[in-house]
Write a protein that binds this DNA or RNA. Structure first.
Lengths: 341, 341
DNA sequence: CTGTTAGCGCATTCAC
DNA sequence: GTGAATGCGCTAACAG
């Protein structure tokens, strides 16, 4: 069927092993033979069979990437970083979109094991982590991104979410805001939890008392923001001058809600997000947010993973990248005081 | 090292082939033995080696996905559809992000051949197509999405771009617009070319004369829209009442430019896009656009591909999906007449 | 129904 | 330096 090393060997008048050596540069080969081999390769249009090589060498040069939703711009950016780094280092990447479903996630890990991927770059969907623990228990390399899972001591690349969120709160406080609503992410997702804590700490730093009725949880969707903003306004009885969302998408939803009700951003209420997705700078007004080094997250994760595949480290490394505040026009000075709807 | 069929066979007191038969349901096996095999599998934590299976069966159950840019929401949606369909049909998906670079694209196709993927779902970067022709020449299945490549008679799933663009023009004409600017995509990208033609046809249908100075080409980026909108306004000397962009991202750029210069959408100028990416409904005002059945494009492409892998068809099928106009608030009645900046 | 045999295509011993 | 032999883990004949 397809042309094999043996075919090349025959055409070049050498043995299969010699062909292999030439192709992989494992061992020196006489220049003359080497040339004949290369020529035969070209002549026959030989293409090595990666499957056979992987089987023999017991490594597939393939990595798995599992994300909750590739259409989420944040994960798309991460995926791009992961893809770039993988191919740069000679690995192919199998894409798995878990759709935030734990069951699908479990199935994917199974498939990836069967495919004998050399490692896994992973943004876990929920808090759970059984499937992941099972994976790690087999000694298979895995690097978590964005969030960590309780009880799994694997490599991870995350953002300093607490710090990032405090940056936002400070910014708002400096602008004179005293009553700030918060739209958080799902409980149990570590990055969301950290942002929640960062928000509380930011308030405390400023001597502000948190009000639990002004803090709601969402699921990182636009709809959450859309619904939460009016709810927060109502809960604050007109005192609210700013809203911080735990993701840009939710912030965009909040902004939309404000506009729909005839409010203006930032005049009526300031709004800030987290992530700095592309859309953040494209909306009107452009969104103040916390920029995560997304590309870098993906790239560092792969580098860590490949290092571990090569057996470099033995203890898990935990990389925390610093985010930075990006001030745009969705935040402004707090209104002098008092009632507005 | 890892546990193999042979280990299972020994543990169950049967031959390796029987284990294989039980696992694959190829041939009936005595209930008792079957049970013992299954038990041994569970007991030993056996996991089939997909690499070995693929080598033997000469099919990898893997597909390649090549897109220009996974962070482009349009391609991200497509990727999601492709991923879902692939895994549903039992295939894994290798993700390749060509970054719109022909050379990277070429390298990817090479890698994918070495990996012995069973087929390729492909959004080609440019007009070229040599690498693709080489691929197809080897009889390897490929399905194009969104755009086709001249001289390559492969399966393809596309949108009826001409029709879609005419829908937009009709809509605008009905609103009273007579001087409409157009921001097109790159020449040689078939989908962009079709939209260009559709725009011209739409004008003609309405008895409007195209003005070449009111039609510019871009590269589907936000920046293109940002720059093109003012340029079109200037070229029209105040007569322009509407702008149609060949993609939502460019439309968003145009909208931003209008806002930056103090204009209002749609009062000053109506703006329409193409694709209906998520952001289109989230911006202010929500964008009138042509919705492509993105998810379906991805899914149909995979189904076509898998069908071809199975050797179902022999002639290339060319699927054209109908887009639909989504009227939102970025388009409105043309102003009574005359000058505005 | 089931065991035995024989590769899939390659890289790696081990001798020379 | 190089060839012959071996086996990675699996499934598909081929007999029984």
């Amino acid at each position: 069927m397809s042309v094999t090393v043996l075919d090349v060997a025959r055409a070049a008048g050498v043995s299969a092993s010699t062909v292999s050596r030439v192709l992989n540069g494992t061992t020196p080969v006489h220049a003359a033979k080497r040339r004949r081999v290369l020529q035969a390769v070209r002549h026959l249009g030989y293409e090595p069979n990666g499957l056979a090589r992987s089987l023999k060498q017991r490594k597939s040069l393939t990595l798995g990437l599992v994300v909750p939703d590739i259409t989420n711009p944040f994960f798309a950016e991460i995926a791009k970083g992961v893809e770039t780094a993988s191919h740069r280092l000679g690995y192919s990447l199998i894409l798995c979109n878990s759709g935030n479903a734990v069951e699908r996630e479990r199935r994917y890990l199974e498939v990836l094991r069967e495919r004998r991927v050399d490692g896994l770059v992973f943004v876990p969907a929920g808090r759970h982590g059984d499937a992941l623990r099972a994976w790690a228990a087999r000694g298979l390399p895995v690097v978590l991104m964005d969030r960590v899972v309780a009880g799994v001591a694997s490599d991870a690349v995350t953002t300093d979410n607490r710090f990032g969120m405090k940056l936002v709160v400070r910014h708002l406080v400096r602008l004179g805001h005293r009553t700030i609503g918060f739209i958080g992410g799902p409980r149990g997702v570590s990055s969301a939890d950290e942002r929640w804590v960062g928000f509380l700490e930011g308030l405390r730093e400023a001597g502000l008392a948190p009000e639990s009725r002004l803090m709601v949880r969402g699921d990182f969707t636009f709809e959450t923001g859309l619904r939460a903003a009016p709810a927060l306004s109502a809960a604050a009885r007109g005192r609210l001058t700013a809203i911080v969302a735990s993701s840009d998408v939710m912030a965009l939803g909040a902004m939309r809600a404000v506009h729909q009700r005839g409010g203006r951003v930032p005049e009526t209420v300031s709004i800030a997000g987290f992530d700095d997705i592309a859309a953040a700078s494209l909306v009107q007004p452009p969104l103040t947010t916390v920029a995560q080094p997304v590309r870098e997250i993906g790239e560092r994760a792969v580098e860590l993973l490949v290092g571990r595949v090569a057996g470099e480290r033995t203890r898990p490394s935990f990389v925390r990248l610093k985010p930075r505040l990006v001030v745009r026009h969705s935040t402004g000075p707090a209104p002098a005081s008092g009632a507005r709807r």
